[in-house]
Structure formats: C-alpha cells, structure tokens
Amino acid sequence: MIVALISSCGSPGLGDRFTLRLGSWVTIEGEGFRLAYESVRDERCPRDGQCAQAGRAIVTMSYVKPPENTRGTFMMDAVAPRPTVIEGYRIDVLDLSPNGDFLTMLLNRNVS
C-alpha cells in the first residue's frame, strides 16, 4: 500500500508539497502529525463540459496529533481552496486529480 506520493524518498516534512491517494495516511517527518485523505464529494464541472459554475469538490480529512494523540476530522473545498488551520498547522490544498483519487497539499506551522 502506498502511504504518500512525494517527489523525494521518505516522509514529507513541513513545507514539502505531497500527494495523498484516497484512503491513505501520511506522517509529517519531525512532527509525528498524521493526516489522511478519507473521502471526496466531487461535484466539479466535467473537464470538457460547459457549466455556469466550476462546482465543488469537498474532501474529508482526518488527523492525529501527538503526543496526546488528539484526533479529528475536517472538510475542505478543493475547487475554491482556502487555508485550513488545525492544531497549529496550516493546510493548503494545491490540486485534486480529475478522478479525485489523488490530493496534493502543503502543510506548515500556522504563524498568525
């Protein structure tokens, strides 16, 4: 089973772009923060379609944060992405594959 697809070997670190396959988990190196791409409700306009709106694609993510193993679930819109802040981390959606099987994102510490 592939856990994460990234441009280099090993787990991604903070600030690394990484891609998750639907149903997989990734652990952020040096943080222990785990993130999963659980599901997608894909209502995007078809690639060759002509739609009045782009539609939306709502992805459901889960996380586990050490050392208390705090767990949670949240949703993000991959069509009109806005940064999501969870447990002190900023999560940005960068891309969702046309079939919804792969989600590319970026995770950093939140600095607000």
Rank of each mutant, 00 (worst) to 15 (best):
R34W: 03
T84N: 03
L35W: 04
W25I: 08
K65Q: 12
L35A: 04
Q50V: 14
A54H: 08
N99L: 11
P66S: 03
S112G: 15
G13P: 05
T73D: 12
G55E: 12
P98S: 07
V40S: 07
R41M: 15
L20F: 06
D42R: 01
Q53W: 14
C51P: 01
E31S: 08
N69Y: 14
S8P: 10
G32E: 11
S112H: 14
V3L: 15
C9L: 15
E31P: 06
I86V: 14
D77W: 05
P83N: 12
R56A: 10
N110R: 12
R56L: 13
G88E: 03
G49F: 06
F74I: 02
P66C: 10
T73C: 06
S97K: 03
C51T: 05
S62K: 04
C45Y: 07
D95T: 10
R34Q: 13
P46M: 02
G100D: 04
Q50H: 10
V64L: 09
E38R: 15
T84S: 10
T27G: 07
I2L: 15
Y37R: 12
M105S: 11
E43A: 15
L103E: 10
V111N: 15
F18K: 00
Y89C: 06
G100P: 03
P98F: 05
A78R: 04
R34C: 08
V3I: 13
S11R: 11
D101V: 10
R47H: 11
T19I: 00
E43W: 13
P12N: 05
R21V: 14
G23I: 05
A57H: 03
C45L: 09
L103V: 08
T70W: 10
